[in-house]
Amino acid sequence: MASGEAGPETDAVRREFALERYRYILQQINAVNENAHRFLALYQTLATALVSAALALFVGYRNWDVPASTARGGVIGLLILATVVAAFTSTLILVGALAWLDFRNEECDITDEVVGPGFRKRPRPGNFLRWYETYVLLFIIVSVIAMWVLAAFLLLPAMR
């Protein structure tokens, strides 16, 4: 056999390597899916704690003899922290979605080579309305906007 020709042993090694790579890709896709849930739980926990602290400050600043301007600054600071947590969580979810797309394309490359072209359809970013990450991101955006709107129209004006 001339060098460069693939023998039965080489084909078997390539198939075994492709199978192991395919298993790894499927594990990574699963990890990316699980991470989105973890990031949402992290956001919910931290946002709830920060907003609770802001509300506690709003309710108790007079009893604690904290000047209104300091209390307003504290509420704004806590909302800024909640916004930073939201931005960080959104970034992690977006990067996870991009990683998922990359892994799915690699999965399709392997199945095209080993099984046959078109065995798995490639993911289409246009299907983003069917991805739960889209709705997690929308939830985060809407909740941050709601926090700021409620603070701006209810909490901060009452702290005079």
Score class of each variant (00 low, 15 high):
Met1Ser: 15
Ser3Tyr: 15
Gly4Met: 09
Glu5Pro: 02
Glu9Gln: 14
Thr10Val: 13
Asp11Cys: 14
Ala12Met: 14
Arg15Trp: 09
Leu19Thr: 15
Leu19Phe: 09
Glu20Arg: 14
Glu20Ala: 10
Arg23Ala: 15
Tyr24Glu: 15
Ile25Ser: 06
Leu26Asn: 15
Leu26Ile: 05
Gln27Pro: 09
Gln28Asp: 09
Gln28Arg: 15
Ile29Glu: 08
Asn33Arg: 07
Glu34Tyr: 00
Glu34Ile: 00
Asn35Asp: 14
Ala36Met: 00
Ala36Arg: 01
Phe39Tyr: 14
Phe39Gln: 15
Leu42Ile: 12
Leu42Arg: 13
Gln44Ile: 08
Gln44Ala: 07
Ala47Phe: 10
Thr48Val: 01
Thr48Cys: 02
Ala49Thr: 08
Ala49Trp: 08
Leu50Trp: 05
Ser52Gln: 11
Ser52Tyr: 06
Ala53Pro: 03
Ala56Tyr: 10
Ala56His: 09
Val59Met: 06
Gly60Ser: 08
Gly60Pro: 09
Gly60Trp: 10
Asn63Trp: 06
Asp65Lys: 14
Asp65Ser: 15
Val66Glu: 05
Val66Ala: 04
Pro67Trp: 12
Ala68Ser: 14
Arg72Glu: 01
Gly73Ser: 06
Gly73Glu: 06
Gly74His: 08
Ile76Lys: 12
Ile76Ser: 08
Gly77Cys: 04
Thr83Asn: 02
Val84Trp: 08
Val85Pro: 06
Ala86Trp: 01
Ala86Arg: 02
Ala87Gln: 11
Phe88Tyr: 14
Phe88Asp: 15
Thr89Trp: 01
Ser90Phe: 07
Ser90His: 03
Thr91Arg: 13
Leu92Pro: 11
Ile93Glu: 05
Leu94Asn: 08
Leu94Trp: 12
Leu94His: 13
Leu94Gly: 14
Val95Phe: 09
Gly96His: 00
Ala99Val: 12
Asp102Arg: 08
Phe103Tyr: 15
Arg104His: 10
Cys108His: 01
Val115Cys: 01
Pro117Trp: 04
Gly118Arg: 00
Gly118Thr: 02
Arg120Trp: 08
Arg122Gly: 01
Pro123Ile: 03
Arg124Tyr: 10
Arg124Phe: 09
Pro125Thr: 07
Phe128Tyr: 15
Leu129Cys: 12
Leu129Thr: 14
Arg130His: 11
Trp131Gln: 03
Trp131Tyr: 04
Trp131Met: 03
Trp131Val: 01
Tyr132Ala: 12
Glu133Thr: 03
Tyr135Trp: 15
Val136Pro: 00
Leu138Cys: 11
Phe139His: 11
Val144Cys: 09
Met147Phe: 09
Met147Lys: 09
Val149Leu: 11
Leu150Arg: 08
Ala158Ser: 15
Arg160Asp: 12
